[in-house]
Design a protein around this nucleic acid. Structure first.
Length: 924
RNA sequence: AGUCGCGUAGCUCAGUGGUAGAGCACCUCCUUGACAUGGAGGUGGUCGGUGGUUCGAUCCCACUCGCGACUACCA
């Protein structure tokens, strides 16, 4: 094996081999296990959050594949309507063109071209991450078959009365010129004003004051509302007001929506431009006066001098005129929630338009029930509450978008404006018996991207056709996704899946935390703290990283800040760590917390872990590989040492932990179990314990053979155990280890995952090795604290040895000598006097290291002083407990018993240490 | 306003009704034949605060302080 671990060299080679052999495809036997990928935007790139989730999905996929399941990880990408259209529009703008300079067909062609050109980025990243997706079934939401699914779903929902078209207020993006769903609105608190306007009564008997955050909308007011209980305004109800700046009269109406305690208790009502006012308008039959154009400039429904003004200019103008007329009573500073489009960032406008809606309540009901009944389980389960909270308050879903890129709505209009919904024009004519001379034109709008995403678990499997694949892989086993899209995506898949397939789309929903940077900030281009996962894998020079982070920014003025931050964050750039280290970091990070800080130091730590593993493999390779004796023929004549038995037992326990960790989606536990076994048990102890055997001239051939076999078998099995989390290094080492362990196969990824039963617990071996470890640690502690050079062999005496101590010391002398650096090991007779020594206690056994020439008395006194203090503290603690009668009476007997034993043990320690201190003090 | 979450070692985080843990950082020693991306040893925490339940609370409950996320129509 190569002396140094070089992830670069092996990762690409290994992935290509896996892929070209078609090993990612479902095997066709075993019970089905399936995961659909949350489809990333086809023209985008994967960020750290993706890499994190992909790691977990791939770990599950590889784990289940190795468990013998018929495993599918379904890949694919999303057309991401608005996002993609915006990217292409921006490209056009850079060339001095607008989207509307092109025909719809030409524009869409450009998007497809861009998709072809950039669409490979994600696939390339996924390959580098080691994702074992079934590339042969790669899907795109705009594929013909998936588009057919979208049309089918729309038509069926429409036929069932669950999709309707209606004119009502929507969240309108005046920059993108499209409607948005409620979920695409990002409301943030901003500083604004509350203007108090004075509206005169028609009869000249006074005025009312209304408070508003949007004075410009007063031009569309059609009433002023007061609370019917509000005594101040009883007499005004039904009277008319003169709406300033216009020649209109508007009524004072009573509606209990109005909070008398807020502002003046009078509310101006603009039904066409406010969601609440719209509702009030409906209740009172008020006129809806739309005063805006689609770009949110004032239209012809306002007095001429205001027409054409942008809404913000209009606000200034209205304020100016009201001030001049003496009708502006007061202006207060006021914080308010400003709704913005999540893509454009533009302030949204409630706007009256014709849109298509999905009637959600009937779909939500079974989706709620399914989670209540546990047919779909949230992990961590607390997220179910969030899901319920939203599903129980859900409102109809506006699914039409005034875009060009997306699934066009399958609705056609005749010349009289009648609307027909069907699978295509011919279907519409057939369904509605429309003669061929009736001109039909298709609806210009496209569907919300999430409409097609909602069908993903079954549209990818061939629906609306009933395919064998759909039967096999639906419902999927688990959905792995972030909490940020529970509403956008999870909820909609639940509703659609139950409606169209009649079953939940996934058994489990595993909600991952959100990956933040090391300061706990969300990673974003504007903050300049985005990390490309590939840069952690391959490393990147500082200058290249700065260039990457400051290029293509939406707000170029932030470049300097981003550059400064980057130079501070990574003064040396980013070192290469390899995919396995990154993946292992993600797994170790995947605790159930909702926010996860990503720290490069951890990746470095796990790269070191890879290196450790690599070197352990080299050791095994050298120890076993050059021994031709390990042929299949003589495998029988082997003898297992206590260490061999111990490591097998420990391995079995570790695999058991990993098994339950995977079952519970506790990837952090799985990673910890693998890490601790590999480093602390296999490397730190077992490999060291093999040396006295393998390098001894007196050890028997059978013993050496047993140790070599165990080395090979555990190394081999460990690669299988590690494979789901660290696919590359485990494959590379496995290729080397498998023949040593007498196994053959083309790849570790198709081998069986180790089972605990194959490595049953061996309590005897564990007990004895625990004793060996305690002994060695005791001596090492003295050596460490007394600064005895490792090269210095020392004599050790045992006092108070029981029969088993004596037996262990005899049997395992070779281990003790080697690992503790012992020159001689002498068992003292009970009545023998020991020379002055440093002392360590293992139960009733005292381990003595004679001090002559080695140990400074003062240092030993100090060391013992610390030990004594600790022991005395423990004695005190146990005595407090045991002197409490209630404890002795009420606590479980075994707890009391343990406490008594602890007390006895610490009392003994205190006595021994005190006696030893006395002797040492006597020396001085 | 509602819902949910978080506060444990210098930092980032696990965790459990009965002996407080890991990684990183820090200190001491060591280039010994797998590995200095390493080895051996060590320092470091009244588990945010108060009260309650309990024989026993870091863990369960109540209140409180400090953060955070999401949802929402206060003009």
């Amino acid at each position: 094996m190569e002396k140094t671990y070089a992830p670069h060299e092996l990762e690409r080679r290994i992935y290509e081999r896996w892929e070209s052999n078609g090993w990612f495809a479902p095997s066709g036997h075993g019970s089905p296990y399936s995961i659909v990928i949350p489809p990333p935007n086809v023209t985008g790139t994967l960020h750290m959050g993706h890499a994190f989730q992909h790691t977990l999905m791939d770990a599950l996929t590889r784990y289940h594949r190795m468990r013998g399941d018929d495993t599918l990880w379904q890949p694919g990408t999303d057309h991401a309507g608005i996002a993609t259209q915006m990217v292409v529009e921006r490209q056009l703008n850079a060339q001095g063109q607008k989207r509307t300079d092109l025909t719809r067909e030409d524009f869409i062609e450009r998007v497809w071209n861009w998709k072809e050109q950039s669409g490979g980025t994600i696939a390339g990243q996924m390959r580098r991450l080691g994702d074992s997706v079934d590339w042969s079934s790669d899907r795109f939401t705009m594929d013909a078959q998936l588009s057919r699914a979208v049309v089918e779903a729309f038509v069926r929902l429409h036929d069932e009365g669950l999709i309707y078209r209606g004119k009502r207020l929507v969240n309108w993006d005046p920059v993108l010129l499209t409607a948005l769903s409620d979920l695409e609105v990002q409301s943030e608190e901003e500083e604004g004003h509350l203007w108090h306007l004075s509206y005169p009564l028609e009869d000249g008997s006074g005025h009312v004051i209304v408070a508003t955050t949007r004075p410009e909308t007063m031009l569309g007011d059609t009433a002023v509302a007061v609370n019917p209980e509000d005594e101040r305004y009883q007499r005004l109800i039904g009277k008319k007001l003169r709406l300033p700046l216009t020649d209109r009269l508007i009524p004072v109406i009573a509606d209990s929506y109005v909070d008398p305690a807020f502002g003046s208790g009078c509310v101006k009502i603009t039904p066409a431009h406010d969601f609440n006012d719209y509702e009030i308008g409906l209740r009172h039959g008020l006129e809806q006066i739309n005063i805006f154009t689609p770009r949110a400039a004032l239209n012809d429904n306002v007095p001429e001098r205001f027409r054409g003004l942008d809404r913000f200019d209009a606000r200034k103008r209205v304020i100016a005129e009201l001030t001049e007329a003496g009708l502006l009573a007061r202006v207060d500073k006021h914080k308010l929630m400003v709704p913005r489009g999540d893509r454009s960032g533009a302030v949204l406008e409630p706007y009256l338009t014709d849109q298509w809606y999905v009637k959600v309540a009937p779909l939500a009901e079974p989706a709620i029930l399914a989670v209540e009944q546990g047919r779909t389980r949230f992990v961590p389960e607390n997220w179910a509450k969030t899901y319920f909270e939203w599903m129980r308050n859900i409102k109809d879903w506006c699914v039409s978008r005034q875009l060009w890129w997306g699934h066009r709505i399958p609705a056609w209009y005749d010349e009289n404006g009648n609307v027909y919904v069907g699978r295509d024009e011919a279907d519409v004519r057939r369904k509605h018996s429309l003669p061929s001379n009736t001109a039909l034109r298709q609806d210009e709008d496209v569907l919300d991207t999430w409409f097609s995403s909602g069908l993903w678990p079954f549209s990818t499997q061939g629906w609306p056709d009933r395919t064998p694949r759909l039967d096999k892989f639906y419902p999927t086993s688990v959905l792995v996704t972030g909490f940020d899209i529970i509403f956008f995506w999870v909820a909609r898949m639940m509703m659609m899946g139950l409606r169209f397939i009649g079953d939940v789309p996934f058994r489990d929903v595993y909600i991952t935390g959100l990956i933040l940077d090391e300061n706990g900030d969300k990673m974003s281009k504007t903050k300049g703290n985005v990390i490309d996962p590939l840069d952690i894998i391959d490393g990147i020079e500082l200058e290249a990283l700065v260039a990457k982070r400051t290029s293509g920014m939406m707000q170029p003025q932030l470049a300097a800040k981003v550059e400064k931050f980057t130079r501070k964050q990574f003064p040396e750039g980013i070192a290469p760590h390899g995919t396995d280290a990154l993946r292992f970091t993600f797994a170790a990070l995947a605790s159930p917390s909702r926010e996860l800080r990503f720290d490069m130091a951890r990746v470095a730590g796990y790269r070191n872990f890879c290196n450790k593993l690599w070197n352990a493999a080299r050791f095994v390779d050298m120890s076993v590989g050059d021994a031709a004796a390990l042929g299949a023929a003589d495998r029988g004549s082997a003898e297992l040492s206590i260490a061999d038995r111990w490591i097998r037992s420990r391995f079995g326990r570790m695999v058991g932990s990993v098994e339950s960790a995977f079952a519970d989606y506790r990837f952090d536990y799985a990673a910890t179990a693998l890490y601790e076994f590999t480093w602390y048990e296999f490397c730190d102890w077992y490999l060291e314990l093999t040396k006295p055997v393998l390098q001894s001239e007196s050890a028997s051939e059978a013993a050496k053979r047993g140790t070599r076999q165990t080395l090979a078998e555990i190394l081999e099995a460990l690669q299988r155990a590690l494979h789901p989390l660290m696919p590359f290094i485990s494959e590379e080492i496995w290729q080397r280890a498998a023949p040593l362990a007498g196994r053959s196969g083309p790849t570790v990824m198709l081998e069986k995952y180790p089972l605990p039963a194959e490595f049953p617990p061996d309590e005897t071996a564990e007990r004895e090795v625990t004793w060996i470890q305690a002994f060695i640690l005791a001596v090492r502690q003295i050596r460490g604290e007394m600064n005895i050079a490792p090269s210095r062999r020392i004599p050790v005496l045992l006092k108070g040895a029981s029969e088993s101590d004596k037996a262990y010391a005899g049997h395992h002398r070779a281990y003790l000598e080697r690992l503790a650096g012992i020159e001689t090991l002498t068992i003292l007779a009970p009545d023998a006097t020991a020379p002055e020594s440093a002392i360590a206690l293992i139960g009733e056994l005292s381990v003595l290291v004679p001090m002559a020439g080695l140990i400074d008395v003062a240092a030993e006194v100090e060391r013992l002083g610390k030990l004594l203090a600790k022991a005395e503290q423990e004695v005190a603690k146990t005595r407090v407990k045991l002197s409490n009668e209630n404890f002795v009476r009420n606590a479980p007997p075994d707890v009391v018993k343990t406490e008594r034993e602890r007390e006895a043990d610490f009392v003994r320690q205190v006595a021994s240490i005190k006696a030893q201190l006395e002797r040492l003090r006597g020396l001085r």
